[in-house]
Amino acid sequence: MNETNTFLLDGEEIPFTPGQSIIQAATEHGIYIPHLCWHPEFKAHGSCKICTVKVNGRFGSSCTMAAQAGMNVENRTSELDDKRRTLLQMYFVEGNHFCPSCEKSGNCSLQATAYELKMVSPHFDMFYPDRAVDASHPDILLDFNRCIMCSLCVTASREVDGKNVFSMGGRGLLGRRIHISSESGKLADTDFALTDRAASICPVGVILPKRKGFAVPIGERKYDKLPINLQVSEETP
């Protein structure tokens, strides 16, 4: 590695390989940059904006910005964490995130990120949108009340499974949603399978295997044990 290929992340010198994004380099060195739509397996999506950092004084998404030698990156400053918390609050008011009744609770990236950023309330007025649940598939339940529009299922289905079961379509707060590749719009009418990568990629509680709810007792779930900032890994769930 060329030793000049380093940048500063909250004052710490981080080496990187040319072509890596800021978040990739940080993750490789075990440093947590809060994020939701980014996943180490896939090309950056850049939609959640939780991974926003300040590079040489300007805001940018650490998942889409290439690491460059000598850049000065701010990550866990109170200014950035305040913005991230506000973005999380936006997620919590635009969807229906009722953790007590969600099978994903304790294993959910949205929830764990909100804990890490000390989000104690949704702050804004709740939207309580009317969103669909699709229970048509024999093995999988889709609960779009919890969708954060990260598109990871779209990418996984396309790139790993080669199926294109999902697509992100529509516009704006009310229109934007996952479209399912069948005329009925139902998952049962696609070739989606429990073994698909897309079936296990959802960071929140939208895509859930049926008959497996609440299998791990409270206290032993992923983020019960350790907070998300201490579980930085390039390995993927």
Binding site: K49, G172, G175
Partner: peptide, 10 residues
């Protein structure tokens, strides 16, 4: 708003 990014969509 196209709805892609959180700050603008919400």
């Amino acid at each position: 708003s196209c709805g892609f990014c959180t700050p603008c969509r919400v």
